[in-house]
Amino acid sequence: MLWNFTKMHGAGNDFVVLDGVRQPITLTPQRAQALADRHFGIGADQILLVEDPLDPAADFRYRIFNADGSEVEHCGNGARCFVRFVHEHGLSRRNPLRAEIATGLIVLHESPDGQVAVDMGSTGFTPQQLDFDADNLATRPVGQDTQYALDLGDDTHWFSIAAISNPHAVLQVEQLDDYPVNRIGPALERHPRFRQRVNVGFMQIMTRHAIRLRVYERGAGETLACGTGACAAAIAGIRQGLLDSPVQVQTRGGLLQISWDGQSLRMQGPATTVFQGQVDIDALVAHTLENKG
Results as ranks from 00 to 15, higher is better:
Arg22Leu: 05
Gln23Met: 06
Pro24Cys: 09
Pro24Ser: 13
Pro24Ala: 14
Thr26Tyr: 02
Leu27Gln: 07
Thr28Ile: 01
Thr28Leu: 03
Pro29Gln: 10
Pro29Thr: 10
Arg31Met: 08
Ala32Tyr: 09
Ala32Gln: 06
Gln33Ser: 04
Gln33Ile: 11
Gln33Glu: 12
Ala34Glu: 02
Ala34Tyr: 03
Asp37Gln: 04
Asp37Lys: 05
His39Glu: 05
His39Lys: 11
Phe40Asn: 04
Phe40Arg: 02
Gly41His: 01
Ile42Leu: 12
Ile42Thr: 02
Asp45Glu: 10
Ile47Val: 15
Ile47His: 05
Val50Asp: 01
Glu51Pro: 13
Asp52Asn: 13
Pro53Leu: 11
Pro56Ser: 14
Pro56Met: 12
Pro56Leu: 14
Ala58His: 05
Ala58Asp: 10
Tyr62Gln: 06
Arg63Ala: 08
Arg63Gln: 14
Ile64Trp: 02
Ile64Pro: 09
Phe65Leu: 01
Asn66Asp: 06
Ala67Tyr: 04
Ala67Leu: 06
Ala67Ser: 15
Gly69Asp: 09
Gly69Glu: 07
Ser70Met: 03
Glu71Leu: 11
Val72Ala: 12
His74Tyr: 11
Cys75Met: 08
Cys75Val: 04
Gly76Gln: 11
Ala79Pro: 11
Cys81Val: 11
Phe82Gln: 06
Phe85Lys: 11
His89Ala: 13
Ser92Ile: 07
Ser92Leu: 09
Ser92Glu: 11
Arg93Ala: 15
Arg93Tyr: 00
Asn95Ala: 09
Asn95Asp: 04
Pro96Gln: 04
Pro96Arg: 04
Leu97Gly: 09
Ala99Phe: 02
Glu100Ser: 08
Ile101Glu: 05
Ala102Phe: 00
Thr103Phe: 00
Thr103Trp: 00
Gly104Trp: 01
Gly104Ile: 10
Leu105Asp: 12
Leu105Lys: 03
Ile106Arg: 05
Val107Ser: 15
Leu108Phe: 00
His109Ser: 14
Ser111Pro: 00
Asp113Lys: 09
Gly114Asn: 05
Gln115His: 05
Gln115Cys: 13
Ala117Arg: 15
Val118Met: 13
Val118Glu: 07
Asp119His: 12
Asp119Val: 07
Gly121Gln: 12
Gly121His: 06
Ser122Arg: 15
Thr123Asn: 12
Thr123Gly: 05
Gly124Asn: 09
Phe125Asp: 15
Thr126Tyr: 00
Thr126Pro: 04
Thr126Asp: 05
Gln129Cys: 07
Leu130Lys: 07
Asp131Thr: 06
Asp133Pro: 11
Asn136Pro: 06
Ala138Pro: 01
Thr139Ser: 09
Thr139Tyr: 03
Arg140Phe: 04
Pro141Met: 15
Gly143Gln: 08
Gly143Pro: 07
Gln144Tyr: 01
Gln144Ile: 02
Asp145Ser: 08
Leu150Ile: 13
Leu150Gly: 05
Asp151Met: 00
Asp151Thr: 00
Leu152Asn: 02
Gly153Glu: 06
Gly153Asn: 08
Asp154Ser: 14
Asp155Gln: 13
Thr156Glu: 14
Thr156Phe: 10
His157Arg: 15
His157Ser: 09
Phe159Val: 07
